[in-house]
Nucleic acid binder design. Structure first.
Lengths: 254, 254
DNA sequence: AAGTGGTCTAGACCACCAG
DNA sequence: TGGTGGTCTAGACCACTTT
């Protein structure tokens, strides 16, 4: 009974409480796909809110692809893997861990550099402003072998937004994880193209000249300022990008 | 004055009326980026609805990236190209037209074929079931030159869902446009990788063996049934995929 | 002080689906 | 017939920004 007051009660909207309540149970498997979640009226009683508030919580979870609702029937946990990657930023370390493999990182470069013409334009700062620059190679290994490179990360970061960036130990925390924790980006831009790897990229990724690679260029903004520009190179044989999502008219499923 | 009753008044929710009203003005440029849209109270008066209804309309348009809202200030038309491609299906003909160029199509193959093992699994139908198969080359040209191939489209369609598919004239309507009109997909899956083009792809796309290509594999569902599986090959030098979007906490912008 | 958006309530009516 | 979700109203309080 009781209202299951989560630790983080602090001033969050009531519908967010309900969303968290549902998401936790869906996330940890307490409510498996197909499971019927409490009706609006049951949530009204359980959380002591009005029906509009409970409705909003369930409606938003439906729009996010977590739940499927059927008028006259009920609300159910959706079966399908929800939207991923390309859309959300994904942390490569967690992804690899999710596959049951080991992730490791080699730091190739980690320094402060002056902005050249192109970078100054990207970051909307003056020429020769100081920027952080980082080059990493992410490797994935299944057992006790050395593993293979799966991503080359070439990243510039705005020191004005994240002054402590270069002090991190990137063998413990990926830049993506750190940046997401440090600044919540308001906006993301992704551009994907295919490239033939350069000599240097071939060496770092341990691929041949003929193996095509995916180049994902990501820029993120916070409060109108660019936070980071990253070029992520994936050998196509070892990685592809995936997205699955609902279409505007959300509805359906079991 | 009056409620600007749109032609399609038929039983649509009131908040949808308001959303349409706003979207039309944003779409046709009547309200340019940065323009301040009517406040909730003004919409309440104009549409004779309650504030909750007006609020929901504006909130959803915010979530869709059309509007930016600032508490205490107002609601404004967003400046930035909203989420595109990779997320939404995009129609290559419209895209090319939007760049002021001409789009043309060569139909390489258009027939009914029996499902092999792989296709049967994809479509969740029996082996040797009949499927529609289509191969197109999309070209883009700037002036009166012949233009260059920008996309090779290799598509299978479920006849049970779209029986009239093969009867279309794909020089007039792209498969994407037709399919979107025929069946509203509930769900989409995109997988992106990089490939070195095969001999046949090199010929059709008029690219060299060394030019990497993007391979976008798209599957769409309607009511639990697969509608179509498409493999779209883009020469990387002529095309890249782009997405820009807001992060979960939507807020900001002028 | 006035206006904005953000949230919330306690009712209500409806179409739909189940038993 | 009773429960479900979908919509809607007419109030309300709040934090915030602008004037």
């Amino acid at each position: 009974m009781a209202v299951a007051a989560t630790p983080d009660d602090c001033a969050r909207p009531l519908y967010e409480h309900i969303k968290t309540f549902v998401r936790e149970r869906v996330g940890d498997g307490t409510w498996p796909p197909g499971h019927r979640v409490p009706s609006e009226n049951q949530l009204v009683a359980r959380f002591s809110v009005s029906r509009m508030t409970a409705h909003r919580a369930l409606r938003e979870l439906q729009q996010e692809g977590v739940l499927a609702r059927r008028p006259g029937v009920g609300t159910f946990v959706r079966a399908i893997p929800r939207k991923t990657s390309l859309i959300d930023i994904r942390n490569i370390a967690e992804e690899i861990a999710a596959r049951g493999h080991r992730h490791s990182v080699a730091v190739c470069s980690k320094k402060t550099i002056p902005a050249n013409q192109e970078l100054a334009a990207d970051f909307e700062v003056d020429l020769d402003s100081q920027l952080f620059h980082l080059v990493l190679v992410h490797r994935e290994r299944a057992d006790r072998h050395k593993g293979v490179p799966v991503q080359l990360e070439d990243r510039y970061v705005n020191p004005a937004v994240v002054p402590t960036f270069l002090q991190q130990d990137f063998r413990r925390t990926t830049p993506t994880a750190f940046l997401l924790a440090a600044v919540q980006p308001d906006e993301l831009e992704h551009t994907v193209t295919a490239i033939a790897p350069s000599k240097e990229q071939q060496t770092l990724l341990e691929v041949g000249a003929r193996e095509p690679c995916l180049l994902l260029r990501r820029r993120s903004w916070s409060k109108e300022r660019i936070v980071t520009v990253a070029e992520l190179v994936y050998p196509a044989s070892r990685y592809s990008l995936y997205a699955r999502h609902l279409h505007p008219s959300h509805r359906q499923q079991r």
